[in-house]
């Protein structure tokens, strides 16, 4: 016969079980088509970003096709980056870099963009604080207080930033740019805040490569975190200890 103590334990377990099951049911279905999980992730415009998450990306160089520029093209379209036919001053938020191992001759192809560092040198050196890191890990430029000194471009180890060298036309409403200010990859923050993936990631998937995985590095259950755990990966210029938000596999 069970003792009183065991009985009370059973009761507690039952309560916990019922509580968890109820919560799970509530999370799955609040109303037809509306899930509580989604409600928790989507933010209204006036709600600040959460420091509970850290947006990040994995670039799987083994899946990145040599000569493919789907991600670059999608980025250019998303941000309205029209080349002026002047490669030295035209902005590039993301670019494909071709690598060749000097010793073995092995070739790699991979995209490089703002690495969204945890301790970003661009943020450190910006005199006005225009370069800043959102609490969810996205490094941005506040174009209203950027004075165009380009110190961040001197400081970035990844050559991720561009300076707007000319007057602009046909701007994209979601991502306004400004002549005389500095800009770079925003992880498509305007999409991410609406629960969409960055344009480059979407384009890479659409092209069937799946070389880019985007997600929350702080959420152990996210696809990104799972892949980061499965695949050996590295940071560019890991020696600098910047804890980048973009990781690379297969290089």
């Amino acid at each position: 016969m069970p003792s009183n103590n065991a009985k009370s334990n059973m009761n507690t377990e039952r309560r916990v079980f019922i509580g968890r099951a109820g919560a799970a049911a509530a999370m799955l279905t609040l109303a037809p088509g509306v899930r509580l999980v989604d409600l928790a992730l989507a933010r209204s415009a006036d709600e600040p970003a959460s420091d509970q998450m850290r947006w990040g990306m994995l670039v799987d160089a083994t899946k990145c096709a040599q000569g493919c520029t789907e991600c670059v093209d999608a980025c250019n379209e998303e941000f309205g980056l029209e080349g002026m036919g002047r490669p030295k001053t035209d902005a590039q938020y993301i670019r494909k870099i071709d690598l060749k191992d000097k010793t073995t001759g092995k070739r790699y192809s991979l995209p490089v963009m703002c690495q969204h560092c945890e301790t970003a040198p661009c943020v450190d050196v910006c005199p006005t604080g225009a370069s800043f890191r959102r609490v969810d890990g996205i490094v941005l430029v506040d174009k209203h207080i950027c004075i165009g000194c380009r110190y961040c471009m001197m400081a970035c180890p990844f050559k991720a930033r561009s300076f707007v060298h000319e007057n602009l036309t046909n701007q994209v409403p979601e991502a306004p740019r400004g002549k005389g200010t500095v800009e770079s990859c925003t992880f498509c923050v305007h999409r991410v805040d609406r629960d969409r993936e960055p344009a480059c990631v979407e384009a890479c998937s659409k092209a069937g490569h799946e070389a880019l995985v985007f997600g929350d590095m702080n959420d152990p259950g996210s696809r990104l975190s799972q892949r980061l755990r499965q695949l050996p990966n590295r940071q560019i210029r890991a020696d600098l200890g910047l804890n980048t938000g973009v990781r690379y596999h297969g290089v």
Partner: peptide
Amino acid sequence: PLVLFPGMEESSTFFD
């Protein structure tokens, strides 16, 4: 040029 990948030859449309 900035060295992103030591030991590798780098090339890109962004003059890496």
